[in-house]
């Protein structure tokens, strides 16, 4: 879904067009799901948060002034929801990280083979991301898994572009170290 298409569809959805909102939902669900999943690292929780994000978007869509910024606006809602989740989690004991973020390949849309590869990769990256700080994890997720620019990422996280550059540098470095360590550990096991 292109940005220009988005603007028209967003305006229609804001006027209460359910078909337009369904189109927005289909075009952005995977994006929001990835943004949430690699931060909370629990599949069911990520799905719940995704639902809340779209419910909130449905309620507040009329308040969006610039339809061109719908994607960033939606991801900002997602980020706020994730933050709320962390705030709640801080008052309770943290649950264990989901080692299998997606149960089976058939629970995902798309080609089963490609999906299986994605599952393995997502599990590998998610495990490695445990070594990152929360902020580094947010930046790496938004920049490389969601695909936002540094400016968009900074806008969502309320950080400057330079701060995003630094965070992504240190985040990628930590991720690389952890991926290498995990790979070596896996080789040793085999």
């Amino acid at each position: 879904m292109t940005e220009s298409t988005d603007a028209a569809v967003v305006e229609a959805a804001g006027r209460g067009d359910h078909a337009a909102f369904a189109q927005l939902y289909r075009g952005h669900l995977a994006l929001v799901y990835r943004a949430v999943l690699f931060q909370v690292r629990q599949r069911e929780l990520a799905e719940d948060i995704c639902q809340e994000v779209f419910l909130q978007a449905h309620r507040s869509l009329g308040e969006l002034r610039d339809p061109d910024r719908f994607r960033v606006w939606l991801l900002r809602i997602a980020q706020n929801r994730v933050r709320n989740h962390w705030r709640d989690q801080a008052r309770r004991p943290a649950p264990p990280v989901d080692r299998e973020p997606v149960d089976t390949a058939v629970s995902l849309e798309g080609d089963p083979r490609a999906t299986a590869e994605q599952l393995l990769l997502s599990q590998e990256v998610m495990t490695a991301m445990e070594s990152l700080t929360a902020l580094q994890r947010q930046v790496v997720t938004l920049r490389f898994i969601v695909g936002l620019s540094a400016a968009e990422t900074g806008g969502i996280l309320d950080r400057s572009e330079n701060a995003v550059h630094n965070l992504q540098h240190h985040g990628l470095a930590a991720l690389r170290r952890q991926l290498s360590a995990n790979e070596q550990r896996g080789t040793a096991h085999r």
Binding site: Y33, S107, G110, Q118, F144, G147
Partner: peptide, 12 residues
């Protein structure tokens, strides 16, 4: 490597 995850679909 991480960017390949941009193709991760949403659950059914």
């Amino acid at each position: 490597h991480v960017r390949r995850l941009q193709a991760l679909p949403a659950p059914l």
